[in-house]
Write a protein that binds this DNA or RNA. Sequence first.
DNA 1: GAGTGGTCTAGACCACCCT
DNA 2: GGGTGGTCTAGACCACTCC
Lengths: 236, 236
Amino acid sequence: MTPQLRASRSLHESVRQELLNRIQNGAYLPNLPIPSTATLSSEFGVSPITIKRALRDLQAIGAVTAIAGKGTFVKEQRRFLIDLSDGIAHLETANVRLMSIANEKISDPAMEMFNPPGEATLCVRKMIFFAGEPPLAYDSTYLSPDVDEAIIDKFAARPVTEALGRLGIRIRNISYLIDASTAARKVAEIFAIPNGYPMLRRLYKVTTTKKGLTIFGILQAPFDRLSYSLNIQSEN
Amino acid sequence: MTPQLRASRSLHESVRQELLNRIQNGAYLPNLPIPSTATLSSEFGVSPITIKRALRDLQAIGAVTAIAGKGTFVKEQRRFLIDLSDGIAHLETANVRLMSIANEKISDPAMEMFNPPGEATLCVRKMIFFAGEPPLAYDSTYLSPDVDEAIIDKFAARPVTEALGRLGIRIRNISYLIDASTAARKVAEIFAIPNGYPMLRRLYKVTTTKKGLTIFGILQAPFDRLSYSLNIQSEN
DNA sequence: GAGTGGTCTAGACCACCCT
DNA sequence: GGGTGGTCTAGACCACTCC
């Protein structure tokens, strides 16, 4: 019954590779549980601890989700694609859930590229998701503390570019910084992903035609939920 | 001597958080070793295994690098920034090391968005790096198998857009897909990073004015080495 | 109550580096 | 030879879910 383990530098790595193959081959199906740690332990003839180690690595790369008391489930892979070719991240059909509004300084070091204001800003944090699906992204928008109440309300209710559209405010320029990061504790809780899970981030600075209104922010999503496309036509 | 551990859901998480704080506070300095597992074990009053668990998590998020036989070192954080505003990833001053040239089919599922050819292509794989620095990126370029020898040579020696420039071939259109991923075994070895390490990827499709020459490829880099910027001026 | 995954510990062995 | 991190195992306890 003991399957052939791939030659590899370590046992847990071989186990991980074999389980991953089964997932990719369809031997284990999305949204269904894989055999329990105890079962796999006897099947592979290795310690339960080694199985757990392999499963933990599979969680880290987004292949499975473990729920204590229930089992370990194969994760369904479905990525949302945002096109940035016109500078706008189109999310008109998305839902928004406001998480918090607080006075806060912009602290992320990657943000320094945009020369953000040193003083405290008004930070609007929200989740972006589609009905019936796991949360897509977490957005932190930083506004000048003296903006109108009406503007804050719009940013609390809709994604950035759509909020601007509904307010009738024109965009002058958008700067993006796209990078990958690892989920901090709070973000990991929100998305129900392990601490340190890879995140795709888009930092933005939006300048508008409305005097004094410049918007900074970070939109981040688990790496297996979102990607960006971009098309550039050569001039002439 | 036992320091106060942050209230948290688990011991190894508290330890990880405390060590991360020390790194960010400058108590542990870049490129220098932190105390050994045994030392930390007695300092925190927890099992060495728990320390190892915390250190492994810190490796996974790119905070430290462990070298068996030497110690665990704080990783220096320096990210290279590529501007994509004109569609070109400028890498003129970078060095290139050819890794392999082989006939291969394009297999990455994310690539399907570009409708790549189903038949086998010529795959040129190379490292991109700056002198005296750890490798920056790993590029896989897929060419039609019937391209000229001279063209293959240029792609083996230089980054894609620069190779085209030197060949005097004009670009008609570039499509990008930017996402995050986790390092497969082979890639992890090349970069000397742990298996499953977060990677920032840029998939591309370049169409040219030269008849029949369309280039597909994937450029990937460890998440803590590279990020992309993009600036969009609003028309009118 | 039985089964699940998550955590923590103890102890052993290995490969590697440095002196 | 002594120190380092990496691996594997055994065994225990917990919180949770489902029947």
